[in-house]
Computed example of a mutant assay.
Amino acid sequence: MVEIKPTTSTVQMDDGVNLRVKAIGENSKSTKPLLIALHGAPGLSTSVEPEATFTFLSDIFRVLVFDARGSGGSDMTGPYSHDRWIKDIEILRKWAGAEKFVLAGWSYGGFISLDYAVLHADKLLGLMLRDTWANGILGQMTALGNILTDDRLHVDVARQVRVWSGNLRDDKDFEEAIPEILPIYAPPEDPSLKGPVKDNDELKGFEGMDERAAYNSATQNAAFSINVPCFDVRQKLKDIKTPTLVVVGRHDRITPVEFSQEIANGIPGSRLEIFEHSGHNPASDETEKFRQVTLDFLRTVI
């Protein structure tokens, strides 16, 4: 595989907001299909995670990753709504010059991907959903419940309630809330695999947190006080005709297996892949298997 250096651009949306966008795999082969990958955790995550996850496809795809408005290096300017984030994806699709593309969403990015698929199925070659859910209230309450009952965690209960209900006091409140829950995202220690999870080495980047990351509580609050309680596509899953791969870690306590099973059961002809040794991110927990499963799926849609 020939290494193709990513190019970083600032792309302006129709309302003047600038997004930090990175294209990987752009070269003279303009016929390569486009894959747009969405990060999770608005106001916390950045394009770092999807870049690390999907760069391996750059010899056969143009991979586009970006910091959503309100996250990372993009403008901290709302509205922070699913409709607006979906419109931003549409603008980036056109900017990339693609009529159709593969959309991959992880965690909160999966919510956006599902809403996009309901609205714009005609634009999709394929849909990849990784560790996500189809119903917001049930999902956020389940995640909070699992956090508050996990023996590995020692959390400030009131602060976690503020995080998951979208009522953070300020950015500092957000910054203090995240480190205390990091272990719940990892799979249990398994000596037959790669050994114990290292506190900040392996987990620091799981949500795309890097030197550009900025805790933006306004984005998180909008996402979890307004967007998530209104998000429910369970009755619309049957209308998604796009070839779909659903991936989940067996030990995911943020978006548990039953949520992915519900999505896979609802989308006709979809494929469910459960990663037995993974937590919230099989792409990092079982990288080799994840890449093979991804390639097997993508070969069926291009």
Rank of each mutant, 00 (worst) to 15 (best):
G195S: 13
I226D: 13
L237Q: 00
I91Q: 14
R299C: 02
L125M: 14
A37D: 01
S71L: 07
E258I: 12
L35G: 03
L92W: 07
P179E: 00
G72F: 12
A177H: 01
L119V: 11
H277S: 08
G126I: 13
R162F: 02
D15E: 02
V118E: 08
T132Q: 07
K87F: 13
I36A: 03
I267A: 10
V21Q: 02
F101N: 00
E207P: 04
H251Y: 14
L44W: 04
L34D: 07
V248C: 09
A264D: 01
S81D: 08
V163G: 04
V48R: 15
I267P: 03
G145T: 08
V163Y: 10
R169H: 11
G195C: 07
L129R: 10
G205C: 02
D201A: 03
P179W: 00
R93A: 04
S192V: 14
V233K: 01
K238M: 07
L44E: 00
G43F: 04
L57E: 07
K87W: 12
F206A: 06
N216W: 09
Y185V: 13
L272I: 05
M128P: 02
W85S: 08
P268R: 08
K22M: 15
A37T: 00
E273N: 01
P179T: 00
G97A: 09
D201C: 02
L127Y: 10
R234W: 08
L203Y: 01
F174N: 04
A68M: 15
V2W: 13
N221F: 07
N200E: 14
G136Q: 01
T142V: 06
A186M: 11
V247D: 00
L124I: 04
V118C: 12
E202N: 09
V155D: 05
L168M: 15
L193P: 05
V293T: 06
D14C: 05
D173Y: 10
L64C: 13
L295N: 07
P50E: 01
L272M: 02
R271L: 15
K5L: 14
I91W: 01
A143S: 12
S30I: 10
R291Q: 12
F66Y: 15
E207K: 09
E202L: 11
E189V: 13
L44M: 09
F101T: 02
E99H: 13
V102Y: 04
R291W: 09
D150M: 00
I86V: 08
R62C: 02
S47W: 11
L57R: 10
D252Q: 07
I60E: 10
T7F: 06
N18P: 04
V246W: 11
C230I: 09
F61N: 11
A41Y: 14
F111W: 08
I302R: 15
K204P: 03
L182A: 07
V301G: 12
N146E: 04
N221M: 06
D199G: 14
V197F: 14
L144E: 06
D75L: 01
W95N: 03
F101V: 05
G73Y: 07
E258W: 12
E175M: 13
E262C: 07
